[in-house]
Amino acid sequence: MMIKKKLFFLILAIIMIIPLGSGCTKQSPDDNSSTAKSDSVTITTYNSADFQSKASEAEKWLKNNANTEEAESSQRYENDILAIGDSTYISLCCFETDGMVDRFRYVVEKYKKDEKTVIYNTFFSYDTCPFTLIKDESNIILYFMGLDIASLATWGDSGKIIVAYENGEAEIIEYSFSEDTETEVANNGLDKKKCRCEFMHLLKNNKIASVIAISAPQEIKYGGTTTRLFRFDDNLTPISATAINMEGMYEEKYFPNN
């Protein structure tokens, strides 16, 4: 009975994944039979090299354009930069301590002209969804916070996030990283040069129909590949997901840490 149940969910997961795979295939310019749909699906891939170069670029920009002290601070780990129009977004993981308690925060700063605004600021936690959507007056950004993503058994170090829009378009954001990169451990415990899976991705528009994540964990003994369909609160923070993996279909609750 249990095997049948698992088989059912496996087939269900495959059925969910096949159309997405088809969408990827239709990206091929040689595939003339799906020209219309090929324009509707965009694939973006982030890997270890991207994360490292984006982190360096963010730190460099901050140093040259905003605050040298912050850029050189060992308490901040800038991880990505997005330049959109006259605005620049910097995402970072921020280390705090009062000598007794260590805390990590994920922060997104927006620089417009000489003005700096913190548009996202949350505690790092293992029971918070590893990504969130951040919306300001002009843009909507998917922010992936993967500091310890490989340690979460049902997430792992690679996966895809699929964003479907109300107009029928979709984006597939693929991420993968390797922890093999040479590391330099800073005094605060953050691995300064360690490759971490953190990035911002500018979404096409804010008319989002659904967001699905497919994760490929390294340890398949714990549920295997997990597919999640997310629900968000009014602030576009993921608050729960319907998850499907080899253990079945279940509700997963997240604890936003503000």
């Binding site: 029971d127 979460l152 058994a153 340890e219 253990e247």
Partner: peptide, 28 residues
């Protein structure tokens, strides 16, 4: 605890479940 979907509680040499690693999830 494994195989119980959202009601798992485990940790290994590499990975763990949020009910083990997240303090609010653990309390819940």
């Amino acid at each position: 605890v494994t195989g119980q979907s959202s009601n798992n509680w485990y940790m290994g040499p590499n990975t763990g479940h949020p009910n083990w690693t997240g303090l609010n999830s653990f309390a819940s």
